[in-house]
Design a protein around this nucleic acid. Sequence first.
DNA 1: TGTTTTTATGCATACGGTTGCATTTAATTC
DNA 2: GAATTAAATGCAACCGTATGCATAAAAACA
Lengths: 345, 345
Amino acid sequence: MALTTKDIALLAGVSQSTVSRSLNNSRLISQETRERVLKIAREQEFEFNANARGLSTNRTHTIGIIFPDEYLDFGVNLYFGSLHTHLRETLEKRDLDLIIAFSQNRFTGADNIKRLIIRRKVGGLIIVRSRMAPETLEFLHQSGIPLVFLHFHQESTKLEGIDQVYTDHVKGGFLGTEHLIKLRHKKILCISAGEGSEYQQRRRGYRNALETHHIPYDESLILYGDRSFQSGYDLVMQNRGLLDTVTAVFVHTDVMALGVLEALKERNIKVPEDIALVGYDDIELSTYFHPHLTTVHQPREKIAVLACERLFEMIGSKKVKRGKEIQIQPTLVVRESCGGKTADR
Amino acid sequence: MALTTKDIALLAGVSQSTVSRSLNNSRLISQETRERVLKIAREQEFEFNANARGLSTNRTHTIGIIFPDEYLDFGVNLYFGSLHTHLRETLEKRDLDLIIAFSQNRFTGADNIKRLIIRRKVGGLIIVRSRMAPETLEFLHQSGIPLVFLHFHQESTKLEGIDQVYTDHVKGGFLGTEHLIKLRHKKILCISAGEGSEYQQRRRGYRNALETHHIPYDESLILYGDRSFQSGYDLVMQNRGLLDTVTAVFVHTDVMALGVLEALKERNIKVPEDIALVGYDDIELSTYFHPHLTTVHQPREKIAVLACERLFEMIGSKKVKRGKEIQIQPTLVVRESCGGKTADR
DNA sequence: TGTTTTTATGCATACGGTTGCATTTAATTC
DNA sequence: GAATTAAATGCAACCGTATGCATAAAAACA
């Protein structure tokens, strides 16, 4: 059987509470005793029983992460997968366990967010790009649990008092577009996605850039995919005419951009010679394709680290003021898919 | 505050133990009472406190999954990522929570396997392709925790009594090679990986196929990569001479195969016309590349489901006999990268 | 030296469930 | 209808830790 604090107490010749206090660095303990207890605990490879601890303190050394459902869908999960990895890594540094769930149990329909809090007593929650019922949101507020929303900025007043870490998607949309404009492109097709505020924001950036540079905004130059490789591919194949009239394409996810690239290759349209291409996300996968994608980089590791640190702060002290919004700037990574050349040809 | 069984008891006018029994489907409870209690619990959105439960039963509704470190490495994580997804999905169906860890905490150096058991009291453990210290293995044995090893077959007698779910990598190696042989290829380059039993087994299959068809086995036709896209690419670039002498390449991971494909394209070697290519894993990514990869398919979902079911059995009853080894047959998925044609040219 | 203050330790209870055992109530048997 | 048995419920202890409170020991003070 696993050792308990009681066992350690026996070995050390002290009471169980002294052991508990020693291991928890309480300052009610003499240096001498503490060290003796710690030594024995180490020797015996003592591990706390997380359940007992959680029961007693009503919190656990566990963080919950809520991912959006589409995480399951390979075609679009490369960005979130990478984010996941960084989150895991950051939490592991703090010796925190990680429970992962989708916002809703896809089989029982249970509200996993509520469950993680009530049932698992997670010490904090990171919620990645999830819509949620107002009721759940209300519940989160009331629970007072440390909470960080990730990925995109939500402006709803309902989210007041909730921390958010996100990249500036408007800026990202602007950067990608402006790069193309500076290469003298004027007719820039925008392949975005229908659902999701981040895409709306990226489109706003696209439009801002055009207007800043006095290029008329043309709604017919916006197409909507579903974020998948296939949809990028399909949009190119289905809009042959449109593609002949543009000199550049700005695609709002790398995965779609790779689909676009593939389709263009098949149609014998050369990138970047015939069409310049800009993606969004800077996923590692895109370096597998040629030409390498110029793309808007979102610093995933930074997002993960900042979100976790914020969580740690809140967990560490109840007095930390909630509702901080951390905006991270995306950057443009220039590779080959736009060419060094301008659009003058 | 969250509701407890005591609260429900009060509302239902019964004792706390009756509530507990009702919610746990004990047969010591009358149908009538049970229903009344359940109804109230539902209405109140009662959720068990997992800590309290875990403390008294000494087990939790939680499964641990241990992933290999390289999971972090994108270049090789596509297969495991997909496996992960299926595992998560399967466990969610059973309303089980999931804690994920690497076998060793990469920062504190702690043995996560031991920790998950002692500290988190996970009800079961799935260990994906991990080497581990004999001491840890011994510990696992003793703990009696439901346990399934995933991915490849380990024949060590030390693993006796431990369940394994794996695909037959020897068979897979055989299938891929034989397909090429039947297309009349005789000089088949094999790009494998240095570390990992599964690759050793795939190479054995490769050799078996050659010998079965009376083709001399030539060790110099085996190259070793590190499973990454880049290493597939590099091997092709660094072994130009060798590649000119073969008509087919069998690559032991799809990710590497895609790297190979990319390099061949760059060298203007046509696939499948000049060289036929077979991969291994059947990851979704490979359908993004052209020509589509002929590859050895490992049924990831089946592996996940079988592993979980086995775990459920063991969790459900202590009497279940341990040590079952479930072998799953890989299949060959013929796509475009070998051509319909034979090697007679 | 006696008294007060400080510091270190132990005692006992709470956390929210599960479960063996005792008890009550209902059903069955004679 | 009394005695026996079965079914349903309640009582209470326990799981392992944290922590308020009481207390003992040590230090400081008078």
